[in-house]
Design a binder for these strands. Structure first.
Length: 922
RNA sequence: UGGCGCGUAGCUCAGUGGCAGAGCACUACCUUGACACGGUAGGGGUCGUAGGUUCAACCCCUAUCGCGCCAACCA
């Protein structure tokens, strides 16, 4: 094994091995239980960013864990065609070459996008490999694959026939830059400084005027009414009268509607049904005409009279100038207004009338809510058994989910783009009716005319991603894969696409799979931010490139950082400090492994390495069998580490199941570093010198190391696999670590550990020894006893604690770096050069022999005395309270009393020490 | 405006109704044959604020302040 941990040396090599040997593959015919994660398909345009790194790491950890736990694990990868995003990127490329999609024409443009996809679509996929991702690459799907395209068309047709998809004309959000309509979700409300213009509308009868306040003066050209609140005393008399629309001189009515807020502006509202969602509803209630004043590109049309041909923004300035000239603009206020921006290009979204395809979501949403409610009331294991229920973790997201679902609005699914699934609807030139079909249509189903042409629009990208969990498995065919892997087990993704994607998959999945949910659990992770908590963006220049991180720290360290910071529902502030530390963790594991190998005599590190001889060659023994057979003969330290290992494995299994990944990583870290490295390895150095324990300790070292590597493998797969390769092979060891059984308690038959390792007695014993070591070390530290000094220590022990203490003596001597630890024979109170330490049932007497700074030690003891006195006071006050004695549980009272007794003993010891030291000082 | 989350050591965060924890950073010492990407010891917090419930509150309740996110029809 190489002396230095250098991830670059082996990560790629190991990955190639895994992949080429087919270890990532799921099996359609396996009789193992299935476990499925549909991978959120990244956009083909994308390069790997930290958000991807997070989901890849989380999902890879889960899938590796389940795979090792004996499941037929399928992680189904793929990519998304990402309609607008990809079209935008390719258009930008075209612009660089001074051309445009319009110049190329639709067919040629789409060809270009496909070729772009072919050259760029694999980039991100390969970057995932760098992270160690282990999906079944052979099953990779693309949202515009023939199979998925077929599913999309079929779903559209079915929904149309069910009346859930329909064509309608209404106000929609239109991005003028992208030249398409958008769904509500794709419009990002953003605050921005604007003005509130007060405009006078003269009454038609000449009896005065009404002043309205608006942020969109140019839309007055499309006004079809002025609205006031029916109970507004100021305007009551005007209801039913008419005003003359400034600049156009059209007469429009004054209507009354409670929607109007009397407090805002002037309390009167101009109504422009064609260019405002609320005005549209208002107009519908009052049968107002709808006048569109602009075309789809935002150029004013003939309805705008003299402003025809102007861009909206230009028209606004012109309208304001003209109103000013006519003295109709009475006031201009500053105000902060919310405007909708296009999610993709951040240009202002213009609400305008257009004819689009919509999907009625209510009926589907109701079923998706029912499945959530059902799952919410169940335990995790329970929900896994019901196909009509699912669970959301962390559960704080339920309320958000319900709120959105309960208030769901129809979804505008058509887009005026070229890149995407073309809508399978054909219009007849003769009877002008529409034919919707999943198959290409050559004649009108109504009049049989062959004069038909397909809808020019494509579907919203999310329409196809909504089918992802089942369309990728071959739906509508009931393929073997479909039967085995639907419903999938876990859908893991960022909360930012809960509505865009997760909710839609649930609705579509339940609707098209006989009421069976697409996944049993939804895991939502936090967003990766920079170390200041800001969103990473290229413009801010705070982007940390995951590939740079991997190059510098290795994929494992990066993964471990992401996992340990993936606290639930919170931002992840990524900083390189943290990654550095996790690389140190990997390094620690690496070196601990080298130590174990060295002590097994498996490799010699130095020419003068102490030659531990192997009583039996390790190739010939199975550690678990050996341990099972010899468990009762194991030294408490060996039993202790096996016990710690088992507990850790157990809680890691529980935590991973509950998606408490951060806590699971913490457990792994603490066990590996604190228990295994800091204590067990140190203990083992002493144990190995005793021939009685050498062999069993070697077996334990090997067993614990192997188990730790297995436990850590889902988190940090590369380094663990690499170390594993260097370990002695046991009988039956022909597989790589990634196929090794995951350590766990014997709950489901997958366990390989046959001995019962949970051992509270051994844990207690070793804990006691550790405490003594820590007391002694602290004593040394505080008294500045020279590191090389080896003070002699004697002890007195209670008879209850005596049995077994002898076994701990060499351990304590070794770890506390003392000269000796022997039973106290004389009366230490008579020796001035001895300090006394109280450690529960053991009293330690340390021969100081001029080793210490007497004044310093007295000072320390005084401080300790004060602390103990303080603690005694605290406890005694507590015990003196009648209410406490009456109400607190007896066990607690006993515990408190016991504590006081112990503290008093400690106080005595301290007093004794002070006394002696004072005498010593003379 | 509503919903949710967060405010704990200098920083990043755990945490449980029973005298505050970890990692990093900091200080001192240690180059001990796995590891200086290391070891040992140490300093540091009235757990946002104010009330309440309780024998006991960082934890439960109420109010309040600050930060963040999400959903919203106030032009």
């Amino acid at each position: 094994m190489e002396k230095a941990y250098d991830p670059v040396q082996f990560e790629d090599k190991i990955y190639q091995e895994w992949e080429s040997k087919g270890y990532f593959k799921a099996d359609d015919k396996s009789d193992k239980p299935s476990f499925t994660i549909p991978m959120p398909p990244p956009n083909v345009t994308g390069a790997l960013h930290n958000g991807h790194a997070l989901f890849v790491t989380l999902e890879d950890t889960l899938i590796r864990w389940k795979r090792m736990s004996g499941y037929n694990a399928l992680w189904l990868p793929g990519t998304d065609h990402a309609g607008i995003a990809t079209q935008m990127v390719v258009e930008r490329e075209l612009a660089k070459n001074k051309t445009s999609r319009h110049e190329l024409g639709r067919e040629e443009f789409i060809k270009r996008v496909w070729s772009w996809k072919d050259t760029h679509g694999e980039i991100i996929v390969n970057q995932m490999r760098k992270l160690g991702a282990s999906p079944d690459w052979d099953r990779a799907r693309f949202t515009m694959d023939p199979g998925l395209s077929k599913a999309v068309r079929l779903v559209f047709e079915k929904l149309y026939n069910e009346g859930l998809v329909y064509r309608g004309t209404r106000v929609t959000n239109r991005c003028l830059r992208c030249e398409t309509v958008l769904s509500d979700l794709e419009v990002v409300p953003t605050e921005r400084k604007s003005h509130l213009w007060h405009i006078q509308y003269p009454l038609a009868d000449g009896s005065g005027s009404v002043t309205i306040a608006t942020t969109r003066p140019e839309t007055l050209l499309g006004d079809t009414a002025v609205a006031v609140h029916p109970e507004d005393e100021r305007y009551k008399a005007l209801i039913g009268k008419k005003v003359v629309l400034p600049l156009l001189n059209r007469e429009i009515p004054i209507i009354a509607d409670t929607y109007v807020d009397r407090e805002f502006g002037t309390g009167t509202l101009k109504v422009t049904p064609a260019h405002d969602f609320n005005d549209y509803e208002l107009g519908k209630r009052h049968n107002l005409p709808v006048i569109s004043i602009m075309d789809q590109k935002g150029i004013l049309n003939s309805n705008a009279g003299p402003y025809c041909g102007l861009r909206v923004t230009v028209a606004r300035d012109q309208v304001i100038r003209d109103l000013q000239e006519k003295n109709l603009l009475t006031k201009t206020e500053e105000l902060v207004q919310q405007v909708g921006l296009c999610q993709r290009c951040e240009s202002i979204v213009e609400p305008m009338m257009s004819e689009q395809w919509f999907m009625n979501m209510k009926p589907l949403a109701e079923k998706a809510v029912a499945a959530a409610k059902k799952g919410e009331s169940m335990s995790l294991t329970e929900v896994d058994r019901h196909d009509d229920a699912f669970k959301i973790l962390p559960d704080t997201w339920y309320s958000t989910y319900y709120h959105w679902m309960d208030n769901i609005r129809d979804w505008c699914v058509s887009r005026q783009l070229w890149w995407g699934h073309r809508i399978p609807a054909w219009y007849c030139k003769d009877c002008s009716k529409v034919t919707v079909s999943s198959n290409d249509v050559t004649s009108c189903q109504h009049c049989h005319s062959t004069s038909v042409h397909q809808d020019e629009d494509v579907l919203d990208t999310w329409f196809s991603s909504g089918l992802w969990p089942f369309a990728t498995l071959g739906w509508p065919e009931k393929t073997e894969a479909y039967n085995r892997f639907y419903p999938s087990s876990i859908l893991e993704t960022g909360f930012d696409i809960l509505f865009f994607w997760v909710a839609r998959m649930l609705m579509m999945g339940i609707h098209f799979n006989e009421g069976r949910v697409p996944f049993k659990r939804v895991y939502l992770h936090a967003m990766v931010r920079d170390e200041k908590g800001q969103k990473m963006s290229k413009t801010k220049g705070n982007v940390i490139d995951p590939l740079d991180i991997i190059r510098e720290y290795g994929a494992d360290a990066f993964r471990f950082t992401l996992l340990s910071m993936a606290g639930q529902g919170r931002d992840i502030k990524l900083s390189t400090d943290r990654i550095e530390n996790d690389k140190a963790f990997c390094n620690k594991l690496w070196n601990a492994s080298r130590y174990v190998l060295m002590k097994l005599g498996y490799v010699a590190f130095e020419s003068n390495a102490p030659g531990f001889t192997n009583p039996e060659p390790f190739q010939e023994l199975a550690t678990t069998e050996w341990l099972t057979k010899n468990y009762s003969t194991l030294h408490p330290v060996n039993q202790w580490i096996l016990s710690r290992l088992e507990k850790t494995a157990d809680s890691i299994n529980v935590m991973l199941d509950e998606f408490r990944v951060g806590e699971a990583s913490q457990q792994l870290y603490d066990f590996s570093w604190r228990d295994f490295c800091d204590w067990y390895i140190e203990f083992s150095k002493e144990l190995l010198t005793n021939p009685a324990y050498t062999h069993q300790t070697q077996v334990c070292l090997l067993h614990v190391l192997r188990s730790t590597l297995a436990l850590a493998h889902p988190f940090i797969p590369f380094i663990t696999e690499q170390i594993y390769k260097n370990l002695p092979k046991l009988p039956g060891d022909s597989q790589p670590l990634m196929q090794h059984p995951f350590p766990r308690r014997r709950i489901d038959g997958v366990c390989q550990d046959q001995f019962t390792a949970a051992n509270p007695a051994a844990e207690e014993t070793v804990m006691f020894w550790k405490q003594i070591v820590e007391r002694l070390r602290a004593f040394r530290g505080e008294n500045r006893i020279a590191p090389k000094a080896r003070p002699a220590v004697t002890f007195q022990i209670t008879t209850a604690a005596e049995p077994g203490f002898a076994l701990g003596i060499p351990m304590i001597i070794s770890l506390a770096q003392i000269g000796s630890l022997t039973p106290e024979k004389g009366n230490p109170a008579e020796r001035f050069d001895t300090s006394e330490l109280n450690c529960g049932p053991v009293k330690l007497f340390i021969s100081l022999q001029g080793l210490i700074d007497v004044d310093g030690e007295i000072k320390r003891l005084e401080k300790e005395k004060a602390k103990i006195a303080d603690d005694i006071g605290h406890s005694e006050r507590k015990l003196a309270k009648k209410e406490f004695l009456d109400r607190a549980p007896q066990s607690l009272i006993n515990e408190e009393q016991g504590k006081v007794n112990q503290l008093k003993l400690n106080l005595q010891s301290v007093d004794q020490s002070i006394l002696r030291l004072n005498k010593m000082r003379g």
